[in-house]
Design a protein around this nucleic acid. Structure first.
Lengths: 226, 226
DNA sequence: AATAATATTTAGGTATGCCTAAATATTCTA
DNA sequence: TAGAATATTTAGGCATACCTAAATATTATT
């Protein structure tokens, strides 16, 4: 009947996960960005981040007006949740036939309540996958995040070829759109044109050719060479 | 990021589920029994039950010192959770190899967070089962609880034969014990003796013979005739 | 039927995690 | 570099769901 949070509340887990994701590319996580991602008021984030910073052990480093970063402890907890989330997405797609645009929300709810035993069994049943259905890396049982050497699609220029590795998107409508275009992990593509001013690129996938803007191409990551 | 409770909190769901189970055999659910099952103080139960009774729509009928029963609405919600719980137990056993003593706790946490979509897919993948790994009946998608025509093992007398249909137990240690004895749903048994004063019966299962007391035999339900 | 034992309720309090409004700090712009 | 715009924090509140201690009601005993 408990909530299986190993003493870390569900709300805290959400904070840590989002701080992890916001700080992945270097900077610290701002109050506002966190508030937006969590769907709560900035003032509430300030209070909560202060609490996380003065917990024992502290889960985040925080100085007023400077945003938050994760401590070692906080990072451990974040990676645990991210591992849960990504294994669950994989699991839902592979065993229950969910599509990749449907699993995010479900995994967000389940990630907080599954046991370590569940996690272990799921990983084994899936053959210890290293990427989820969006191509996102799954931290290992040791909570190490593997390296990702992929490149943003937006950085390619004609006539480069590439294979899609990872699609960084949550919005179901966008994911369905990308699915229709064939822009999914594993897809091979080639760049046929690039517009320098608007950043649009023309790509060919499955013999279909179309143009994508930076809003999309910045969030698709590829391995160069088809 | 929400908790998928259709406006009914997780705590409320636990109350309703437990009231359902306590009132299944007729009487109303007392404050104390609920407190014991939920692991909280009786005073807290009083407060919560009062709240459930004055919700709109009311989820329980309640009069001071008289215990609580479910309203139609409350029963609907309870059956929804029980359906989740029992499908999940079945799912965990069949797809992740959990044993029947390990699934209760896990299902108690998951039951509150899965979507209707998840429920539907799980039911379909399992072939719309009507009983969970303990033999407990699973309410249908229409939230009708099927009839159970089984008989308590404790009511049998030599030389009756029977097949185990349902084992009403949660305690993992007890469930492992029963598993070792072969007292699991589907097992055929025959009654070889009955002690009138202590209620013990001797039963033979898988060519092994042993004695079980009423604490066990009252919670094993059978279909008479092997 | 009075008293004892048990069950339940009331009263007052706590922690969590959110809110709004107002104050303050930082960053941008001219 | 002053003022405007933006971001953040403080202060004061609220709902949920739990707690303990004390009061009261019900049930059992003699």
């Amino acid at each position: 009947m408990k909530t299986m949070t190993k003493g870390i509340s569900q709300s805290t887990q959400d904070y840590l996960k989002n701080i992890y994701e916001l700080t992945e590319q270097g900077a610290s996580a701002s109050t506002n960005d966190l508030a937006t991602r969590l769907g709560i008021a900035p003032a509430s984030v300030t209070g909560m981040v202060q609490k996380l910073a003065s917990a024992t052990p502290p889960l985040v480093d925080y100085r007023k007006h400077q945003g938050a970063t994760l401590t070692k402890e906080g990072q451990r907890a974040a990676l645990e949740i991210i591992r849960h989330h990504r294994l669950l997405e994989t699991w839902l797609v592979q065993t229950l036939g969910f599509s990749w645009d449907e699993v995010h929300e479900e995994a967000c709810r389940l990630e907080h309540v599954i046991s370590e035993d569940f996690e272990t069994r799921m990983a084994a049943a899936l053959g210890h996958p290293t990427r989820d259905p969006h191509g996102e890396l799954i931290p290992g049982a040791d909570l190490q995040m593997p390296d990702d050497d992929s490149t943003p699609l937006s950085s390619l220029r004609p006539p480069q070829d590439a294979t899609i590795i990872r699609v960084n998107a949550i919005d179901p409508a966008l994911l369905r759109h990308l699915d229709e275009l064939g822009l999914i992990p594993g897809a091979d593509l080639s760049i046929s044109a690039h517009s320098p001013f608007d950043g649009n690129i023309s790509i060919k996938v499955d013999d279909r050719e179309f143009v994508v803007g930076p809003a999309i191409s910045n969030n698709i990551f590829v391995e160069i060479g088809g």
